[in-house]
Structure formats: structure tokens, C-alpha cells
């Protein structure tokens, strides 16, 4: 019976990797992937807690999160396509038309 906190620690690590990924990477797509990874880490935490609490609420919420994430991906990729059509790069650095 692996104590729940192991899962939570693992999820926290993955979440942080996602955060670092978003901060470090310059490519819009990779940033987007790390955000998805963060979402997944949250899902893992919720599932672990759901088991520990014995209630299904957590799992159902995770299911809803998946649907939300899928919708988000659809919109995100459409926007990225939009950008690429105008300019041939997805490097976040180069998209600095809007001055600071």
C-alpha cells in the first residue's frame, strides 16, 4: 500500500518540471506541452487523493479536466496555426511586435 504522499511528491515534481519548461523553452508548442504536463500532474494528485479519501469526486473532476484540456488544446493549436500562417516561426522571442 504505497502511501499517498509518494504520489503527491511525484506529482509535485512533474508539476515543477512543467513550470520550468514553460519558463525556459522558447518554442510556443513546447511551452504548451509543458502546460499540459502540469495539468496531468494535477490530475495525478487528484486521483491519488481520491483513492485516499475513498470518494469518487476526485476522479470525476479529473475526467472533466481532461475534457477541458482537450478543448484548450484545440484552441491553442488553432492560434499557433494562426501565427505560423503569418510568420514562419513559433519562437516566442521573435513574437515581440507588441512592445513592452
Amino acid at each position: 500500500m504505497v502511501p499517498t504522499s509518494y504520489y503527491l511528491i511525484l506529482a509535485a515534481i512533474i508539476f515543477t518540471l512543467g513550470v520550468i519548461g514553460v519558463l525556459v523553452r522558447r518554442n510556443a508548442l513546447v511551452i504548451f506541452m509543458s502546460v499540459e504536463m502540469m495539468m496531468n500532474a494535477v490530475n495525478l494528485t487528484l486521483v491519488a487523493l481520491a483513492r485516499q479519501k475513498g470518494s469518487l469526486a476526485g476522479q470525476v473532476f479529473v475526467f472533466l479536466i481532461m475534457a477541458v484540456a482537450a478543448a484548450e488544446v484545440a484552441i491553442g493549436l488553432a492560434i499557433v496555426m494562426e501565427i505560423v500562417r503569418h510568420r514562419d516561426t513559433t519562437n516566442v522571442d521573435e513574437l515581440n511586435l507588441l512592445k513592452w
Partner: peptide, 17 residues
């Protein structure tokens, strides 16, 4: 206008984050 697309991308990435 490209600025609109770029604004959307910035808003989106940070929003998802």
C-alpha cells in the same frame, strides 16, 4: 492584423499556465 494573433497567443499561453 498580426498583432491580434500574437496577443491571442500570449493571452492563451499565460492563461493556460
Amino acid at each position: 492584423r498580426l498583432t491580434s494573433g500574437e496577443a491571442a497567443l500570449k493571452y492563451f499561453l499565460l492563461g493556460a499556465f
